[in-house]
């Protein structure tokens, strides 16, 4: 039986089994490969997407539980959190880049909750997102930078 989900404003029908995690529906069924697989057990954050505006680990959300709008990294540029992608580029954060979709989606969730996060807020919110290249200095700087831009303080 086909299930209908809305991703980045577009409605998709999929006949994937309802227990299939959202991650694999996005990547393999819908061809939205910006969301990454890192661990499969919610231990690395690479698969982070938004479900009704909340960050979730898409490897842990079965298709049958997708009861709201999904936003992935491919759709983030259409939201106000494009500011994060711009800040990421200004601060030249990415190295290999594999974890960065998840980092940015998690950071968007943080800024939605706390528009001007402290370093401690960033530590608490971003601790579940692993980066083996060690880009944490850049991630922290880019989050502060994006927060300034979003709060009208201008970039940089």
């Amino acid at each position: 039986m086909a299930i209908s989900i809305t991703v980045n404003g577009t409605q998709y029908e999929t006949d994937a089994p309802s227990e299939t995690p959202l991650l694999w529906v996005l990547r393999d069924e819908l061809g939205l490969t910006g969301t990454k697989f890192g661990c499969g057990i919610a231990a690395c954050g690479a698969c982070t997407v938004h479900l009704d505006g909340q960050a979730v680990r898409s490897c842990q959300v079965p298709l049958s539980d997708v009861d709201g709008d999904v936003t992935t990294i491919e759709g983030l540029a259409e939201t106000r959190y494009r500011a994060l992608q711009d800040a990421w580029a200004r601060n030249q954060v990415a190295q290999c880049g594999f974890c960065q979709s998840g980092q940015i989606m998690q950071a968007a969730d943080l800024l939605a909750e706390i528009p001007e996060p402290s370093d401690a807020d960033i530590d608490a919110a971003m601790g579940g997102n692993l980066c083996r290249c060690g880009t944490y200095t850049g991630i922290r700087a880019a989050i502060h930078d994006a927060a300034r831009a979003l709060n009208g303080g201008g970039a940089g």
Binding site: C39, G40, D123, A124, M126, G127, C131
Partner: peptide
């Protein structure tokens, strides 16, 4: 998996 073999995190 990462719980057994982790890397430094931001915190």
């Amino acid at each position: 998996n990462f719980p057994d073999y982790d890397g430094l995190r931001i915190f």
